[in-house]
Design a protein around this nucleic acid. Structure first.
Length: 283
DNA sequence: TACCAGGGCCTTT
DNA sequence: AAAGGCCATGGT
């Protein structure tokens, strides 16, 4: 297996690394001084950078590209077509104009479940710290300071005392419940992948620490269920102010992708949503 | 039904 | 420098 740089012809409109890797959907990507990112996913360390209209996957193989990264970056999906469709709506048109290089990542189900359990009642810098400590303590070392995400089987063998160094607060018991149920098959993530979305929601809600929002994030970011629509406080504000009658019907089946544009826009324009004055807001 | 539970980030004071 | 808000879920 040969290791080379893989060059992908993707403009910044098709894949913006910052918008995609640093937007709150994934927690393990680290911005480097030169604007590139390093991170671990699917047990592999990847260094990814942009050069003009090309994306460079450093020191990886065609095998890994085909089996991992092509899917991880959701490259089979036609975002140009989706954006064209969404842009018929003036609000989404502005949100897409603000950040049009977002893609929804297809992360590993188990890691996604864990990171969004950790995300509950939490903020992104702290989530990243907890996930990094969890990987460093219970994952495998790939390179100095870069570790795989620990398996459910490994986590299932731990106690809350073992998780104390994570400093994840009361979420420790939720992580253990998730690990035990996934490891013993009570919640089978491979079975979830084959369920209808409604069945999958019900299955994930059996895990302690998984409520509707965490389940929706897990299905969107970990199972590629793009109809799933996580409603955090930002999206509640967005919907109340900008879509009081709900998203346009035509967007429902891709609502999760629309959500990414709206969420990113809202996060960066918090002032628009701090007061309850819908009339004044015309993004 | 309303509150609190770790904790740390962030904004305001 | 200090105080207070914030956060998604489960349990009381």
């Amino acid at each position: 297996m040969s290791n080379n740089n893989i060059i992908l012809p993707l403009s910044i409109h098709e894949l913006d690394l910052s918008q995609t890797l640093d937007c709150g959907q994934a927690f393990r990507w680290r911005l480097q001084e030169d604007g590139s990112y390093k991170g671990v996913a699917h047990g592999r360390l990847l260094h990814i950078s942009r050069s003009g209209d090309e994306i460079i996957l450093h020191n990886t193989s065609h095998e890994d590209y085909k089996s991992i990264w092509h899917s991880y970056f959701d490259l089979e999906r036609d975002y140009a077509l989706l954006k064209e469709k969404f842009s018929t709506d003036p609000v989404l048109c502005d949100a897409i104009g603000y950040a049009d290089g977002i893609r929804v990542l297809r992360q590993e189900p188990w890691e996604t479940l864990c990171t969004f359990i950790i995300s509950a009642n939490n903020n992104i810098p702290r989530i990243k710290g907890i996930v990094e400590r969890m990987s460093a303590l219970f994952g495998d070392c790939l390179e100095e300071d870069y570790y795989t995400f620990p398996t459910a089987a490994r986590m299932a063998a731990l106690s809350t005392d073992d998780l104390a160094p994570l400093r994840c607060g009361y979420r420790d018991k939720f992580l253990l419940d998730a690990a035990q149920k996934v490891a013993n098959g009570e919640v089978s993530l491979s079975a979830v992948a084959d369920m209808t979305t409604e069945e999958a929601r019900r299955a994930l809600l059996c895990v302690k620490g998984v409520g509707p929002k965490v389940a929706e994030c897990t299905l969107l970011f970990g199972f590629g269920r793009v109809e799933c629509f996580p409603m955090d406080t930002w999206m509640k504000k967005v919907m109340a102010v900008l879509y009081p009658k709900g998203l346009p019907e035509a967007f429902i089946k891709d609502a999760g992708i629309a959500q990414q544009y709206l969420f990113h826009y809202a996060r960066h324009h918090g002032e628009l949503f701090t007061e309850k004055s819908p009339e004044e807001i015309t993004i």
